[in-house]
Design a protein around this nucleic acid. Structure first.
Lengths: 374, 374
DNA sequence: TTGAAAGCGTTACCAG
DNA sequence: CTGGTAACGCTTTCAA
């Protein structure tokens, strides 16, 4: 292994000078710099990043900003697991994770979380035991992982804060809405929603005996860009079948019971014709319940999204035929891995990391659950 | 961050003593040991593994033993990429990878590779430039990654060598054949082949209009345990349909041309009845060619295995309907990651790491290719 | 049985 | 502008 010492000897200078050349800090004579650079190239010197880290003895703090882990059926716990697994794998015990939760259905709660991020305040929920909290609890983060599932305006404010504080960030789950230049560039880790919808279309077409009747997409809950893109991927797929009617059902801002009633209402007139359903988010269960209430006697092919435990049950029981997973655990893992490499090792951030679009059937569902636990 | 120094101070001893307690080497007074252990527990001390590594300034050598990268359509390059990606991610610049290739169709070549592994000899192919090779080229490996796709007897010899030399090993792609106690336990990274076959069954059933006629599995090339298990998963799936006939086609040890002719011969009598095909390995292309030669006018649903470039083309063109991927890149990544954690950081090896059974259709094939490059 | 000191590869600081 | 030295957290060696 080649070290700074080797480089220094080879260039006939001290290691201090080599360090200065490597980091471009401090003044170095033109001619000396050339010699050092030549030595680095000749020996193919690769710095030992762990030694570098050690000598700086800095500890890093990453904020992870998502809806509360309980929301969306416990969905947000999953990427967080991935984050911890990534840091554990890298054996970075100088990185601390600080979770910053907000209520997905309440923009004010997001603004509050944003404010805590921007001021370095500690999270209220983390202090349940009434203890006092040391200095590190009131510190700006060295990096941010965020699922920006909020309004366009809130996104703007977050971007402004990120740019203002100069904190490196990675987004996951859904993208920041596209906007003009001037905004900071934030890498994205996640899935192409349109393509996910297309896969749902294809799967439903495989599940249908003969292409006819009506196919419908169902979106229950906040209909963000992401979910609407999934729906359009689905509908565009089916456009190629001229004999097939398409219906798009979207319901927002209701209680569980109201959703259930609403879906029944929307589905009833379609029932005689309905040949396939695509639920664009994790709400398949509500649709299955609605179909039961409507006493549909034949099975209607159903493709859902997200591998949550209640969906796993439904696919095992045969109520759902296929699920598309966006690999939330891997999203957290990759996002944290990228951010850590950037912040701790000064590597470049990638532009985006796309998750594969995973298809889950009753026959391979176990293989995914095993993998998720790793 | 808690360090040995903190522990030493808390226990009122020197850091040397703390180290002795941690590693159980050297004699320490009973009472002192208690105090140190108490301090470790009280402070929740976590050793800095990178500092440990640095102080030991040891460099590790991993042998990666697979069929030659060119074999099986370039398949073996893929896990090797994963291996390098894992080491890169962990930023372990004190780990060197040494590839040891053998010819999959020639047991003697495997024995030669095994011999090089056991003696620490360098690989002949690595010395094409005629240079001499330094001491490190003749060194026993500190760890082994191996795809044991060889006969039961060769596997036994490898296991004996591993046990004899006491070198930690991880297998991937396919398992060592089960055997009695006494053999060393080698973790496995890969996929459950039986379940993969079941998924192929399910997919083909979705692609068939009405379950009738004959479904066939096709295995071309060395029919190891692994491939036969895939075939049985497929056939067991179809058993539940009493009206469907099942056929199993297996051809080994021929040239490409002979395979092509052989498949035609086997398929011709089935053609009128044939409703679906499952190719258990990457050889789908040969089957597609055979179907073309046989001038089948209607499309026969075809499920294949392994996401190699020629299969990617076939799924894009619609000649193959679905591919099951065993995630070879991830296998290499996970196997190397596990081995590195064990050898470098002295973590326990997991019993097995199972890959998810991935389903690839024309609509999501791009999402997998993007992921593979990461 | 214990402590002190050197060294791993790097950075930071201070003198010259 | 440059070199020397201490320090990071840990292991190893040598004295005591």
């Amino acid at each position: 292994m080649i070290t700074v010492k080797d480089v220094a000897r080879h260039a006939g200078v001290s290691i201090g000078t080599v360090d200065r050349v490597i980091h471009g800090r401090g003044r170095v004579a033109e001619e000396t710099e050339q010699r050092v650079m030549a030595a680095i190239a000749a020996l193919d010197y690769q710095p030992n990043l762990h030694a570098r880290n050690l000598s700086q003895s800095k500890t890093f703090l990453f904020d992870v900003m998502t809806p509360a882990p309980e929301q969306d059926g416990g969905y947000w716990r999953i990427p967080l697991n991935g984050v911890h697994r990534a840091i554990g794998r890298l054996t970075l015990n100088n990185v601390r994770i600080r979770r910053r939760s907000f209520d997905r259905h309440d923009e004010a709660s997001f603004r509050a979380a944003l404010d805590r991020f921007a001021t370095g305040a500690e999270e209220p929920s983390d202090r349940v035991d009434g203890s006092v909290g040391d200095a590190s609890d009131r510190a700006l983060a060295d990096g941010l992982l965020v699922a920006p599932v909020v309004s366009r305006e809130s996104q703007s404010d977050l971007l402004a804060a990120i740019a203002d504080l100069g904190i490196p960030a990675v987004s996951f789950d859904s993208r920041f809405v596209d906007r003009g230049a001037g905004e900071p560039w934030i890498p994205f880790v996640g899935q192409d929603p349109y393509q996910g919808g297309a896969v749902a279309g294809r799967l439903s077409s495989m599940l249908v005996r003969s292409p006819s009747g009506t196919v419908a997409s169902v979106t229950l809950g906040r209909a963000d860009e992401h979910l609407l893109r999934r729906a359009s991927g689905f509908h565009e797929f089916w456009q190629r079948f001229p004999d097939v009617q398409r219906a798009e059902i979207v319901l927002s801002d209701r209680s569980e019971k109201e959703y259930l009633r609403g879906v029944q209402q929307k589905l009833r007139p379609l029932l005689s014709e309905l040949s396939a359903l695509f639920v664009t988010n994790a709400a398949s269960e509500l649709v299955v319940s609605a179909l039961r209430k409507l006493e549909v006697e034949h099975h209607i092919p159903l493709v859902g999204y997200d591998l949550l435990s209640r969906n796993i049950d439904l696919i095992r029981s045969g109520d759902i035929d296929a699920i598309i997973s966006q690999k939330p655990e891997l999203q957290g893992y990759e996002a944290a891995s990228a951010l850590a490499h950037h912040v701790v090792f000064e590597k470049q951030l990638p532009d985006e990391i796309l998750m594969p679009i995973e298809i889950v059937l009753a026959e391979n569902v176990d293989s995914f659950i095993a993998a998720e636990v790793t």
